[in-house]
Design a protein around this nucleic acid. Structure first.
Length: 256
DNA sequence: ATGGTCGGCAACCGA
């Protein structure tokens, strides 16, 4: 079972990249974030033609999540629940005993911005969501653009980023608390080396060439599932293409 | 400190 995640930054603009990638890497599940499209305009046909089922929730211009899968999920839902459920930031799908949660965590904008507080709160709400819906003994996988570099080794220039909304000590604590609900970072499980990144800012030059990136996309699995993770890797290739996304594809393989 | 580049969408906002 291959599970992958990709922040598309517009599923329509990256459609060819995603379809080519599906064809090449043959994942069972691909979670996408920032699809940036209303549901009625989602390019469903091309995915169906490629043999995939798609569960999606989007809006105009911003956010939007999709779970692309070879089999039809038993159950699908969107959002954290409650007020400001953020349905275009969280997608859930169950495949048999496997529970997949795909999130596009709020970026936070600035440390002083109210969206940063919203981001910290989002991690608390998400932990509660896990508490209410699952137990850490179940096979749960949480993937997506989580907008947090958990450790210094997850950014090329950590010392300069102490006040960045994706690395500040408070956001790392919030993230760690939610991870502490019962998740294992399966990418780190297979890669202890530094210099592994999933995001390369294209507002700056040569970030990919000089490997100046951030590891802010993640695959996190509960222990019983993590135990079955045979490999995880980052595919940098889409960054080298003509119309790259700033994010890469992150893959995890499970012997289930 | 600033600006750099994208995508959506039609002026800027978000990243």
């Amino acid at each position: 079972m291959r599970i992958a995640t990709f922040n598309a930054n517009s599923v329509r603009a990256r459609l060819d990249i995603v379809l080519d990638w599906l064809n090449k890497h043959d994942p069972d599940v691909l979670c996408m974030q920032e699809t940036k499209v209303r549901d009625e305009e989602f390019p469903l046909g091309p995915f169906q033609d490629a043999g995939y089922h798609v569960s999606f929730k989007g809006q105009k211009s911003y956010n939007g999540v999709a779970i692309i899968s070879k089999t039809r999920p038993v159950k699908v839902s969107f959002g954290l629940g409650g007020r400001n459920s953020d349905e275009t930031r969280l997608a859930y799908a169950r495949f048999g005993a496997l529970h997949v949660i795909n999130t596009y965590v709020p970026q936070g904008r600035e440390i002083t911005h109210e969206m940063y507080q919203y981001k910290l709160k989002w991690f608390r709400r998400l932990k509660k969501y896990f508490d209410q819906k699952f137990t850490a003994r179940m096979k749960v996988v949480w993937v997506g653009d989580l907008n947090v570099a958990p450790e210094a080794m997850d950014i090329h220039n950590a010392v300069q980023q102490a006040k960045h909304v994706c690395y500040h000590v408070d956001v790392r604590r919030s993230f760690a608390s939610t991870v502490g609900w019962g998740f294992v970072d399966v990418f780190r499980m297979h890669h202890s080396e530094p210099g592994c990144y999933t995001f390369f800012d294209y507002r700056q030059r040569n970030t990919l060439k000089e490997n100046k990136g951030w590891r802010i996309d993640h695959v996190l699995a509960t222990p019983s599932l993590a135990k079955k993770c045979t490999d995880s890797f980052i595919d940098l290739e889409p960054r080298g293409l003509e119309r790259p996304s700033d994010h890469t594809f992150l893959v995890a393989d499970f012997a289930i």
